[in-house]
Design a protein around this nucleic acid. Sequence first.
RNA 1: GGGCCCGUGGCCUAGCCUGGAUAAGGCACUGGCCUUCUAAGCCAGUAAUCCCGGGUUCAAAUCCCGGCGGGCCCGCCA
Length: 539
Amino acid sequence: MTWRWSNFMNPRKFFEGLAREKIEKLAAELQIKDPLIIYKPNPKFGDLVWDTQKLKQDIPSENIEKLNDENIRFQKAGKFVNIVFNPEKYSRMVLDFINSGEFKKVEGGPKYLIEHTSANPTGPLHIGRARNSIIGDTVARILRRLGNNVRVEYYMNDIGTQVEALLIGMEIFPDLPYTEAYRRVYENIEQYKARIEEYMLRAETGDREFLKATRSKLEKLLEDVLKDLYSIGIKFDGFVWESDFILNGDVKMVLDKLEPYLKDENGAKYIEYNNDKIYLKRSNGTSLYFTRDIAYHIYKSKNFDVPVDVLGEDHKLHFQNLAYVLKLLGIENIKVIFYSYVITKEGKMSTRRGNVIYLRDLLEESVRMAEDEVKKRHPDLDEESIKSLATKIGYSAIRYNIIRYSPEKPITFTWEDALNFEGESAPFIMYSYARSNSILNKTESLHRGDNKFVEREVELIKKMGEYTEILEEAGRSYRPDKLARFSYELASIFNQFYRDCPVLKDPENRDRRLEIVKAFNLILKDAMDTLGLEITEKL
RNA sequence: GGGCCCGUGGCCUAGCCUGGAUAAGGCACUGGCCUUCUAAGCCAGUAAUCCCGGGUUCAAAUCCCGGCGGGCCCGCCA
């Protein structure tokens, strides 16, 4: 499998290629041996800059001037050579690239497996967990958009202390909500130790009847978690049950394969690493979560080119150990995205402190706020339309406000920020989209316009021209926030264009500007789909 | 004690990987813009010792070392 990150040839890369060719030729003529430093500067200087500060020799102005042609202008500015693409030619190429649909073309890439969320269903998701889901889902969408084959899995814990405590809780307190029943057992774990151990032993020795019963109970609870995720557009391609790796013998296989590295301690088995002990087997013969996770990752590695885990920062050590043991088995293709916690002003969310914020509550509040706004703006709208619009806005706002931060950045949750509908937010982006839509809806057909692009138009077009590269970068680095930010910036530039450049009321410029609005509409919709934001034709 | 992450205007964030021209946005605040394609918008303004100290370099928010502050982890739990 070949790795291709540059799926897209695009106009910007094409022009950059032209510029580089010229500079390389000049460098050869002048016998410059040092590497050529060419990068994207602050846009006010140009589209590219050739930075000659490191060169010992000065490049004479005459040589620079000779580089100019109808496509690209080179201009010496001290130790920099500013490079400007011909705005008419470049803009035209970008517009055609987008409006022809070319920008959507991708080539097939490697097979990805994204595992995300994988929470024990001991209660509804809180926003910290939701961050995992939203990051995982958005990364999956980006990778798919780039043409890769992507499968998304939820790893379902049906073995272990927490799960047994949950089951026992529901048995002992059948009348309590299951979250509360679980908490009563888990918080008094000493009291129920014997029973938990008995259940764990049955599960880990592969008691099929027991496991079957466990699963059917957990499946019902899982639905409660998934309901919230489905509502914001997050779906899974499959659910992997932890106990399967015991039933199918993989856990035993892992222990056999690792035998040469295992050390014994009263019957328990461990691997030494960094002066630490990684346990794989208890003295009572049962396996540990770690061991089952190794089995899961062997399955991932065998069936996919690039398995990706989405994990909270609290799992860093676990993953480091996992990577070490997998390496012993010759497995090195596992990638991981770590994200930091969502905390509140009172610190870490905890049930005891009573500062847990559940995703569903946040969504509900967000929709309620959106509803107020919609009613204000469209007093004549019927109840059903209001509800539908408010739901899209409310849900998108939450997704956006979680995805816009880079994953490793800790988020301090405030209702004010989470429910911000202005500035860098989903409603802002949706609003710009709706504006472009309303222009397009008032026209019957699009005609090819002239190439007399004005500055404001060129600025917008250049931003659109960056889209495919932003997608690649977001996918390559697992940074969905880069796409989120780009979408906002693009929408923001469109709003400036909207103010300065009348489209329908200006017959001189109408055709050309309609092309621009159409291109913007296509790009932004594509970006919103990829981010999992709802599309609203009107707002 | 050890390991990892974060530290950028009053608040939040981008830029750091791959060092380069006056550090870029949002929120908040102040003032302005709806008889013209949607004002969830736009324009202007106030506001930053880029945590501190060294080092490397012609050049450091960015790289290296040492601190400080905050977070996470260090279980025969998951």
